[in-house]
Design a protein around this nucleic acid. Structure first.
Lengths: 155, 155
DNA sequence: ACACAATTATGAGTAATTCATAATAAGGTG
DNA sequence: CACCTTATTATGAATTACTCATAATTGTGT
């Protein structure tokens, strides 16, 4: 009982996750709840981060099981998978809106960026060679404030 | 001498590649020229495709060497690497403009899409949390004309 | 509490790529 | 032109990030 965070908040979140899982025809398991909690608390986490976080609660969970759960939750729409170059896949619980991501090419940190227009696809490409576009994912690349400051200090 | 394509054209292209390589402080090797030719003739090719194409000319080249050459050419800016979900990295020689890509979620085919505005970054995100944006890569996902026709025929 | 399908665990396997080190070759120099 | 230096490529092994097949377990409706 050393936690300063009330268990009631967590219980409430888990109840919402449970409802969401059932709504997608999925069973409610401790593994799924723990993975959802982990990703909720560490947005853009990679699978390994999720394993570490989940093991605080379920010490014997295997890496493979976490991959299965992550894939299933992504397929059912409770998680979104983000693919960034030079990095394993990342996950987030923010799935309702079509937002984008900015990655720092120096340190790799990732920030959410709101969609330029607000709905998906938020961009209308010119000539798509007959393809019907459903989604436009934008990946901004640049330098974050910290890395810029560090680079200027080095001059 | 069964080729119907004049060797002079190829020689001219290779001379341009050679000049470009030297301009980037790189030595001109048969491996690099063959990789550049392969990617030029098969845009969006994956490493394995490049190995196959290059081996028509240099039968003993190893997969690892092709990876080294591809990485080096990408770093020096002669090639651009494209990362598409569910696919190994792809390469193209079109590096001068900031264009984007559309991938068919059914068959995986990739098409070039001109930049919405014409210069990089071609999109101005709203709030970047202090990050200075340099490039905006857009990945459109949708259904290509062929797959749409096939799906309709199946109804 | 039971049954049965959904889910997770276990152990192995794979694809794509990287790494360390040795051999080779490009290109400037004498 | 032969030589030397360093860049480049070859070789063999290793690694990362996942995936797969199958067995054990656990939710959930009845």
């Amino acid at each position: 009982m050393s936690s300063t965070v009330p268990d009631t908040e967590r219980a409430a979140r888990e109840a919402r996750w449970a409802e969401s899982l059932r709504g997608h025809g999925r069973r409610v398991t401790r593994q799924r709840l723990a993975v959802l909690e982990a990703v909720e608390h560490a947005p853009h986490a990679v699978a390994e981060d999720v394993v570490d976080a989940v093991r605080a609660e379920l010490p014997d969970i295997t890496v493979q099981s976490v991959y299965v759960v992550l894939s299933d939750l992504t397929e059912s729409g409770l998680l979104r998978r983000i693919e960034v170059p030079q990095s394993p896949a990342r996950y987030e619980t923010r799935v309702a809106d079509n937002h984008h991501h900015a990655v720092c090419s120096s340190c790799g940190r990732i920030e959410d960026v709101d969609c330029a227009v607000g709905h998906a696809p938020c961009l209308t490409p010119s000539d798509t060679h007959g393809m019907t576009i459903q989604v436009a994912d934008v990946l901004y690349q640049g330098i974050c404030a910290d890395c810029r400051t560090a680079a200027q200090a080095a001059d």
